[in-house]
């Protein structure tokens, strides 16, 4: 006789995903990513301060395909967190909180962050 699977407690998966919920989670997730990512900037600056040897090593890692992938993700994470922060500044004035408005603004955050990131990388990295 097979044993019936134990019921699991309802958690995130029982909710219908909404864009505002997704952007709320992304704001925290990108915040944590930025927290970790700041060490990339500091490692680069410290290497530059120490000497040409360490800087060459850091440049080689950051310039590799994996390094570029991480830096692309870090760029988007920073830009997205900034857009989310601006959204919070708008809310601080107690506006744009109605159902239609808040989901419009949540979508706008995502569209803006992706657009800005692609624009920065296209203009300054890929086409340069």
């Amino acid at each position: 006789m097979s044993v019936r699977a134990r019921p699991t407690s309802p958690h995130l998966q029982i909710y219908r995903w909404t864009i505002t919920m997704a952007m709320s989670i992304l704001h925290r997730a990108t915040g944590i990513a930025n927290y970790a990512g700041m060490s990339l900037l500091v490692i680069w600056l410290v290497a530059a301060a120490v000497g040409q040897g360490p800087l060459d090593q850091v440049n080689a890692i950051y310039g590799s395909w994996f390094g570029q992938l991480v830096l692309f993700g870090f760029t988007w994470s920073l830009v997205h967190h900034m857009c989310g922060g601006i959204r919070h500044f708008i809310w601080d004035f107690a506006v744009m909180m109605e159902p239609g408005q808040r989901s419009t603004m949540a979508w706008a955050t995502l569209v803006a962050s992706i657009t800005i990131t692609l624009l920065v990388w296209t203009v300054f990295v890929w086409v340069k």
């Binding site: 800087l55 950051y62 760029t75």
Partner: peptide, 20 residues
């Protein structure tokens, strides 16, 4: 931090992969 992000992008765009 909005100013910081602007400065970070400026520096990285100018200095990525450059010499000491």
């Amino acid at each position: 931090n909005i100013a910081f992000l602007g400065m970070l992008l400026f520096l990285v765009i100018r200095l990525a992969g450059e010499e000491r």
